[in-house]
Amino acid sequence: MLSDDYEQEREELREKLLQLNEEMIQQEEQAENIDRFIGKVRKYLDLDELTPAVLNDMIKAVYVHAPDKLSGHREQQIDISYDLVGILPASLLADL
């Protein structure tokens, strides 16, 4: 009976450890991607012209949502998915 509880707790801890290791690997990959993205951004700091090559290098996808007319004005949300980091929140970009 006591050994059954011990074995169950041991298995739960083993699963938790595997889950935490997976999360740690994902966070390390995310940190590496952010570093690589920052390197790309630095490459284009003195950009004089926005070219298709630059866009292809920096942007993965552009999502244009259906227009919203509830406020009396036509508003349309556009999300840009950047290479390596995905969609950045508008609040983060507004602070730049």
Rank of each mutant, 00 (worst) to 15 (best):
M58N: 09
K69I: 13
Y82C: 15
T51Y: 10
Q27G: 02
L2R: 14
E49I: 09
L55C: 03
K16L: 09
E32G: 07
P89V: 01
P67A: 03
M58G: 12
Q76P: 09
N21H: 10
Q76Y: 03
S3Y: 15
V64M: 13
D79G: 06
L96A: 04
E11T: 00
V41K: 08
I80T: 03
N33L: 02
T51C: 08
L45T: 07
D4A: 04
Y44M: 13
Y63I: 13
D83T: 14
L47K: 05
Q26S: 12
Y63N: 14
K69V: 06
A61E: 15
L50N: 08
V54T: 12
L20K: 12
A94D: 08
K69R: 15
L55N: 05
L70C: 02
L45R: 07
I59D: 01
E75H: 04
M24V: 00
E12H: 03
E11D: 03
S81H: 11
Y63M: 05
I34K: 13
M24D: 12
G86K: 09
L45M: 11
L96R: 06
G86A: 00
L70Q: 07
L70R: 12
A31R: 15
P89Y: 10
D68G: 02
L45E: 13
E7A: 10
L17R: 14
Q19M: 07
A66P: 09
T51D: 00
E22H: 13
L47S: 01
D46W: 07
A31G: 05
L84R: 12
I80A: 04
A90Y: 11
E32D: 07
Y63F: 11
E11C: 00
M24K: 08
Q76L: 10
M58E: 13
L93N: 00
V41W: 07
I78A: 05
V41G: 01
L2K: 14
H65N: 13
V62Q: 05
S3T: 12
E75T: 13
I59Y: 04
N56K: 08
S81W: 09
R42M: 05
N56R: 09
S71K: 07
Q77R: 15
